[in-house]
Amino acid sequence: MRIIGPDELVFGVDNLDASTAFLTDYGLTSAGDGRFEALDKTAITLRAKDDADLPPPLPTASLLRLTIWGVEDQATLDAIEAELGTDRPVIKDDSGMLRCKDDAGFEIAFRISHRVKLDLPAELINSPGAAPGRAMNAIGANQDAEAKPRTLSHIVYFVPDMDLMANFYIDRLGFVVTDKFTNTGPFLRPQANNDHHVLFMIQTPAYMQGIEHLAFHMQGPTELMLAGSRMVQKGYESFWGPGRHKFGSNWFWYFSSPLGTHVEYDADMDMHDGAWIEREVPMDKEAAQLFLFENVEKWAPGGPPPAGGTKAGTAPEGP
């Protein structure tokens, strides 16, 4: 089945103003009607918690109300409708979008992806021994770069039965396991996406079920650092990062949010195809990251001027 990845996540919040400010400062663009888009039109949508049009909430603290998956074509939608229609109600709305629940009880939907194809440069680097990545005189450090999220990358859920949930996506929707943390959960990618993961889950008690985090891809590590630094400067709470994960290799920087979930910037994730053989390790802090930095206030090395007031080696002033 040609599923691409998460297309749009819909939240029901009690703090629309704060959530709007957060998503705007994070770098998404308001497209009206509560939708905040990345460059390729994947999106987060905000609704009031009591909006009657929203699917019902989970009985937990989670504010995520709907995960919309994007697929390549109508044939995939038809295949999903036929497959899931065998054992649950699948509702088709006027736009052709399919809605149902997954086996963990999350509200999900499927539609032909709203993504637009991006044609943008990667982060370009110069490396000894390799051809220059940037043209002569092209500058790498641009304080004023836009640093906008490019596309919705992945979603991570807290789920009480990770095997039940993972098997639904694997057996019924054709997702592939790329790697696995023992007793925590598998990293999954759908068939129309080579990204290391678009879906991950963490096994928890039932009262925790919900969204753990969502992430958007940035151009590269420099844009990730730039965007994250701007969030810190605006007073937002950095939760974890910046750093680089091992599984997936993606750079990460997580922020807490008024949507009651961590919101991550990521960059430079591994891509895999059918030749890849999954790895499995126990989850611990060593396995979770290659390295971890922490943002501190800017400074520069230096020292006080020399005693006497005259710089060593400079000529005395005079006519």
Binding site: D14, A18, E237, S256
Partner: peptide
């Protein structure tokens, strides 16, 4: 070591009747 707020001085839910952890929405 998870701090609760999502922004400087922001520790409450929208209506201001509960303390909210911005990590996962605990009230």
């Amino acid at each position: 070591r998870a701090r609760l707020g999502w922004k400087k001085d922001a520790f409450l839910n929208g209506p201001g009747d509960r303390i909210m952890c911005a990590s996962h929405g605990a009230l």
